[in-house]
């Protein structure tokens, strides 16, 4: 479904944000991408929605090479991907309902269907009846839920969440994470970029860790069969977070080349 092949992204100032990235994501997967600020998580998302083009390599979604996508078709690519932004990007002078309606309008919905779907979405994300409130009247968690509702409004097959819990307390972060898991369980491929390591243990599916623009681990979140510590093991998750360390030899997968 999604294929990053030898992707390098550098900026005109010389910064190499992503360096020869290779990974694939299959339909229905829940992938967490971790890494410190500046590791390249957001850039990955921007490449996915063709907000940026790779300096080298290619990004393929559903067989379509984004390097070759015509400008007029970029909106169509973006409609396949629900994007939850780190800064929410909720339009402040529109109500929650209007914000969601925008995405639905873009997706081709109209009139009564928009109203019905908005109500359903708000109920789904846990803020029913808030369509007439402005973002300023909501808590941070509620705004994030509204942003999630907008991102999944048109039932995109892929959802990319860029630091969706970055500005939230731990409890709300877990709630948001569970919401994303629920969306994933309905069949949506979810990619979540975060530096919140406490969430990794909650994801049994797959975690990719980035460091300085390179993938240093690509492993599932299940407890490793052997707790044997090897020099080659990646310790990307602090033990005190209560999450298992990942043995790269057992769980590493889909890294095409080192």
């Amino acid at each position: 479904m999604i294929d990053f092949s030898h992707v390098t992204k550098s900026f005109p100032n010389g910064d190499v944000v992503l360096d020869d990235i290779n990974f694939s994501v299959s339909p229905g997967e829940f992938v967490i991408i971790t890494g410190k600020s500046g590791a390249g998580k957001t850039t990955l998302g921007r490449l996915l929605i063709r907000d940026l083009l790779p300096s080298k390599g290619k990004v393929v979604i559903d067989g379509e090479d984004l390097n070759k996508t015509k400008t007029k078709n970029i909106p169509l690519i973006r409609r396949k991907i629900g994007f939850i932004f780190q800064d929410y990007k909720i339009i402040l002078d529109k109500t929650v309902g209007e914000n969601i309606a925008l995405a639905l309008e873009i997706g081709g919905y109209s009139g009564k269907k928009i109203r019905e779907k908005t109500s359903r979405l708000l109920e789904m994300v846990g803020i029913p009846g808030k369509e007439y409130l402005f973002p300023g009247q909501l808590s941070g968690g509620e705004v994030q839920r509204a942003a999630i509702a907008r991102a999944i409004a048109c039932d995109p097959p892929i959802l990319f969440a860029d630091e969706p819990t970055g500005n939230l307390d731990k409890e709300t972060s877990i709630e948001i994470f569970k919401l994303l898991q629920k969306i994933n369980s309905d069949g949506t491929t979810v990619i979540m970029a975060t530096h919140d390591v406490t969430l990794i243990g909650l994801n049994p599916d797959r975690n990719i860790h980035l460091e300085k623009g390179k993938i240093v681990s690509d492993a599932d979140g299940k407890p490793p069969k052997s707790e044997t510590k090897k020099a080659s093991s990646y310790s990307v998750i602090p033990a005190k977070a209560g999450i298992h360390k990942i043995n790269s030899t057992e769980t590493k997968r889909k890294i095409k080349s080192s």
Partner: peptide
């Protein structure tokens, strides 16, 4: 500007 860039990221066509 910010609203326009958000709309573009949501997949809106230029005419919309």
């Amino acid at each position: 500007r910010i609203e326009i860039s958000t709309l573009k990221l949501l997949g809106a066509q230029n005419f919309y």
